[in-house]
């Protein structure tokens, strides 16, 4: 570990077992400072368990985790100060208003007068007019935003969002992401888990995919997209027949559309040349780029 600039999150050989279920099987993961990082995986892959262990809500059976170089057990005070977690469950304390909750949360982190930052958070999360409302009276989307505000009261350099947009409508989701992206530009490290894979694709520089408690892929979003899934070429041909020499690329037929699978865009030129030589015309053509969901499905079902 580099002591000058420690990783935002360092996870080394983390194992966790619940009874007979091995939830995490030797997770190794490093998230660098300033990254926008996605943790993807199907339900039960171990994402929330990993986040809970990082946040101190659960304890690893073995392995080491550190936030900005602070061990989450031995140096838990520093580690927790560096970390802001938006929990997945829509939890709230029925006794208090939004502002009271945010003041308490500031106090727990040792911050006394935090009103100006609390006001700023409320404004960015469109909660200003709900500041004195009881959290129990707010809609699901608003409760979610209160959770985001609570996670940010102490301006944590590392922010972990566990399914932050579940149940939040499209418009608010956009403004939430704009806010999180701004925090990222200001230097905050962001780690998110989400079921909306297109969100991860649009926002994150790097992605880790978890399956059954193991990291099955860890790379930049661009590399994952390039590496894993072929580009699909959809062709409408006249006459409607695919030359024999192109059969090896065929991946099925959709009515009169022939589907070919290419590894690189450069192969397109060869396909078109072969068609021309065979006297087959192209009536319509479409190129489908792989998205993160394809990569995800490929890895998860592998």
């Amino acid at each position: 570990m580099n002591l000058v600039t420690p990783a935002a999150i360092e996870i080394h050989q983390v194992h966790k077992r619940f009874g007979s279920v091995e939830a995490l099987r030797g997770i190794d993961l490093t998230v660098h400072q300033g990254e926008f990082f996605a943790l993807l995986g199907p339900n039960g892959a171990g994402k929330s368990t990993l986040i809970n262990i990082l946040a101190g809500l659960a304890r690893a059976d073995s392995g080491r985790l550190a936030v900005l170089g602070h061990d989450v057990r031995a140096d838990y005070r520093q580690a927790r100060r560096a970390l802001g977690v938006v929990p997945q469950e829509l939890v709230y304390d029925a006794f208090f208003t939004v502002r009271e909750m945010l003041r308490f949360q500031s106090g727990y982190f040792g911050i006394r007068n935090n009103n100006s930052w609390i006001d700023e958070l409320l404004e960015h999360l469109a909660l200003t007019d709900k500041a004195d409302a009881y959290v129990r009276h707010l809609s699901g989307g608003m409760k979610r935003r209160v959770l985001v505000a609570q996670a940010l009261v102490h301006k944590p350099p590392v922010i972990v969002l566990d399914e932050p947009t579940a149940g939040v409508d499209v418009e608010l989701r956009q403004s939430l992401w704009a806010f999180i992206q701004r925090l990222n530009r200001q230097g905050h490290t962001i780690v998110l888990t989400t079921h909306y894979i297109e969100e991860a694709e649009a926002l994150c520089n790097r992605v880790a995919m978890l399956k059954q408690g193991q990291v099955v892929a860890l790379d930049t979003t661009a590399n994952l997209l390039n590496r894993h899934t072929a580009i699909q070429l959809r062709l409408k041909l006249e006459p409607a027949c695919l030359p024999d020499s192109l059969q090896r690329l065929s991946c099925g037929r959709d009515g009169e559309i022939f589907k070919l699978s290419l590894n690189r865009h450069a192969e397109l030129e060869g396909v078109l040349a072969t068609l021309r030589e065979a006297g087959v015309g192209v009536a319509d053509m479409e190129l489908l780029r792989p998205d993160l969901e394809d990569v995800f499905l490929e890895l998860v079902t592998a």
Partner: peptide
């Protein structure tokens, strides 16, 4: 109550001893 409704996390996440 905090345990049952989950709001105990607000006290478990901060650096409270």
């Amino acid at each position: 109550q905090s345990k049952m409704n989950g709001s105990i996390v607000f006290m478990l996440l901060p650096p409270l001893a």
